[in-house]
Amino acid sequence: MNSREPVSTHDESVAAEHWDLGAVVGGLRAVRDRWREAQGRSREAGGREFPSRDALATVVGQLCGALFPMRLGPADLRQESEDYYVGYTLDAALHGLLEQVRLELAYQARHGDVDEQAIRRQATHVIREFATTLPATRALLDTDVEAAFLGDPAARSVDEVVLCYPGILAVIHHRIAHRLYSLGVPLIARIVAELAHSATGIDIHPGAEIGHSFFIDHGTGVVIGETAVIGNRVRLYQAVTLGAKRFPVGADGSLEKGQPRHPVIEDDVVIYAGATILGRITIGEGSSIGGNVWLTHSVPPGSHITQAGLQHAVAGQERSTPWPR
């Protein structure tokens, strides 16, 4: 039989009997029921409870096209119809996002009295506020694109940067995700961030605060934690980690959430490939952190940190002021 021919209904029934699918489906239902009972969730009939990753991927694609229509929009778009395309695409994106926001807000309120009308009003407010920020988001992204073009001698144009650079794709997603995070829909924001993480290998938590003219060169393996604060004109290379050194534990033994635990990177800092910077420390303005450096203490403005300098400091051969440039 040709391998491309469809399987007959008879063959499908034989396969189902062979795999005992009825028992497998029943077993999966039992596991789900145990999970829902343990989590205090009901088994009431209804629609989807959580935002959809697939739906948000569509929304983000539309938003990217609306933000950069002639570069990330459709291939046949012409400038004379640019505004029409942006309006049509934004309308579709915002309506799609509205439903996902409504789902998250209902999810957040699931343990209380859920007022559907109040949730819809709140979701509409979130989308309205998000929409008003889009021009500012595009202006901010323009500074990121320019920073990438100016910071990479291999870049031949700003158009190449937008079309090809994974760091820019990740930053576009982050600018969108951070707006949503700030508007009170962190699950949606996290999904948007993870779409970029999956595509680029760059993991930026939507809670991270990042200034203008931000450039991630090459990018794969970059990790930026939730409470990281990054200033203006900062440049990172691949495999840089801005992470937590330790995780505060509450009286009940569980991790405390939301505590500042990631680095503060001031303006005009460059962090080279493979550097790991951990804890709520400050990297002073204008500093340069060399490749593969492991850093867990603050450094003053203008510092130049290298592996050799750290090794000398550990051996007591450096002077007390750390690595002035």
Rank of each mutant, 00 (worst) to 15 (best):
F149L: 03
P135L: 12
L140E: 13
L150Y: 13
A148T: 06
T137K: 10
R120D: 13
R121H: 08
D159G: 06
L150F: 09
P166N: 13
G167L: 06
T132D: 07
D152F: 00
T132L: 14
L150A: 13
I119Y: 14
E146V: 06
D159W: 05
A155G: 05
A147F: 02
T133V: 01
A136N: 12
D152R: 01
H125N: 11
L134N: 07
A131V: 01
D142H: 08
A139H: 06
A148Y: 08
R156D: 04
V158Y: 02
G151Q: 02
F130Q: 11
S157M: 03
A155Y: 09
T133Y: 04
P135N: 05
L141D: 12
V161P: 12
L141N: 10
A136F: 04
V145I: 12
D152S: 06
V145A: 02
L140A: 13
R156I: 04
A147V: 04
R128W: 07
A136M: 07
T137P: 05
D159E: 09
A147H: 03
V158P: 00
I127D: 02
R138S: 00
D142A: 15
P153V: 15
R156F: 00
G151W: 00
I119F: 06
A155K: 04
A155C: 09
P135M: 08
P166Y: 11
L140C: 13
P153M: 14
T143R: 13
L150R: 15
S157Y: 06
A118W: 11
P153L: 15
V145H: 02
T137E: 13
R138Q: 01
P153S: 14
V162F: 08
L141V: 09
A155F: 11
P166H: 10
T124K: 15
A123W: 01
V158L: 06
F149M: 03
F130E: 10
G151H: 00
L141M: 14
R138K: 03
L141S: 11
D142L: 12
L141I: 09
T143Y: 14
P153D: 11
R128D: 05
E129Y: 02
R138A: 01
H125L: 15
R138V: 00
L140N: 14
A154H: 12
L140I: 03
A139Q: 13
H125S: 14
A147R: 04
L141E: 10
A139R: 11
